Amino acid sequence: MLQNIPLYDICSLSDINQDDILISRFAPYLDTHKNLFTTHRHSFYHLVLFTAGGGTHSIDFENFEVKPGQIYFMIPGQVHSWAFEGFTDGYIINFSASFIQSFLLQHGYLESFSFFSGNLADAVINLPDQTYKAIKPLFEAILAEAATPALSAGDMVRLLMLQIFILVNRVGVASVLNGNASYNQTLIKSFKNLIEHHYTDVRLPKDYAAMLYITPNHLNAVCKDIMGISAGELIRNRILLEAKRMLINQKLSISEISLKLNFSDNSYFTKFFKKLENITPEEFRKKLINDHGK
């Protein structure tokens, strides 16, 4: 029975005393950490570039098909599992926020990349051939630096990682066609950042609109144009995601989860969850336990 979803830090996954970064080819990493196939969470940033393999991987309860040339990014706290088919390989880098931030003066630099926002639509990217061919040697260079550290090896790894981030980010930026779209994308990003910080205590779109110095109608129109859903749905979806993450933890009762998410009572929380997910929180938890036991 699933008692509590594991939360891994870098130290628990490394053979050496290293709590800032772990770099590896993917196949040997999988052989060493077979426990990571089942649902788990990370306390660190995590990225994988697939060079071979098939099957699926799941991030925050959404499944993605594994493809060579696909890169995905995860932020601390997200829920994750793998279901590979056949031999799977690539590159993996696990790193702490401080590993990169210690190298930069700009606070929050990682969050400037859309794939580190926690939005799954931006976090799993099937790379164009040109980008894939450009970043694969960078991963090889990172592995080489890790295998035989030279003077300022850590800084070289940071530089190579930043090159990867910038090149991958250009794939997304290239899809922005005009200045208005760029402004709306920035607005959505700011809205999502506000939701991330306030979803337990601020529930109404009009309150977020006030924080953004725009009208509620403007906010809703931009959300529908860019995301295809209303501002209210974005807020509710974030609350639902956190509820799902908490429901994995068997040590938390439904009432405790309801309280942590700032619902007035357990009944209201259950109605909220069932309206969005079509099952009750208890049923969702039982399904997770059954799936985990397969």
Results as ranks from 00 to 15, higher is better:
D122G: 00
D122Q: 09
A123Y: 09
A123D: 05
V124Y: 08
I125P: 12
N126C: 07
L127R: 04
L127M: 05
L127F: 07
L127D: 07
D129C: 03
K133T: 10
K133V: 03
K136L: 13
P137W: 01
P137C: 05
P137V: 03
L138R: 09
F139L: 04
F139R: 01
F139V: 07
E140K: 12
A141E: 15
A141T: 06
A144C: 01
A144T: 06
E145P: 00
E145H: 06
E145M: 05
A146V: 02
A147N: 10
T148Q: 11
T148V: 11
A150K: 12
A150C: 04
S152M: 11
G154D: 10
D155I: 10
D155V: 10
M156S: 05
M156W: 02
V157F: 00
R158G: 03
R158M: 09
L159H: 07
L160A: 08
L160E: 10
L160Y: 09
Q163Y: 03
I164G: 08
I164V: 15
F165R: 05
F165Y: 12
I166C: 03
L167F: 02
L167Q: 14
V168K: 05
V168L: 05
N169A: 12
R170T: 06
V171D: 08
V171M: 05
V171I: 14
V171P: 08
G172C: 01
V173Q: 13
V173W: 08
V173C: 01
A174F: 06
V176W: 04
L177M: 11
N180Q: 14
S182M: 13
Q185M: 11
T186S: 15
L187W: 01
L187P: 01
K189I: 00
K189M: 03
F191G: 04
N193E: 13
N193F: 09
N193M: 15
I195L: 07
E196G: 15
E196Q: 10
Y199K: 09
L204W: 01
L204G: 00
P205Y: 04
P205C: 05
P205Q: 03
K206Q: 07
D207H: 14
A209Q: 07
A209D: 05
A210R: 13
A210N: 10
M211I: 03
L212T: 08
Y213Q: 15
I214C: 15
I214Y: 00
P216S: 03
N217Q: 13
N217W: 00
N217C: 02
H218D: 06
H218C: 11
L219S: 08
L219V: 06
L219K: 08
N220I: 04
A221I: 01
V222D: 01
K224S: 06
D225G: 00
D225R: 13
D225E: 14
I226F: 10
I226L: 08
M227K: 09
M227R: 11
M227H: 04
M227G: 06
G228S: 09
G228R: 06
I229S: 11
I229C: 15
I229H: 07
A231D: 02
A231V: 07
I235Y: 09
I235K: 06
I235C: 04
N237Y: 10
N237S: 09
I239P: 01
L240T: 13
L241S: 02
E242C: 03
E242L: 05
K244C: 09
R245E: 02
R245C: 10
M246R: 13
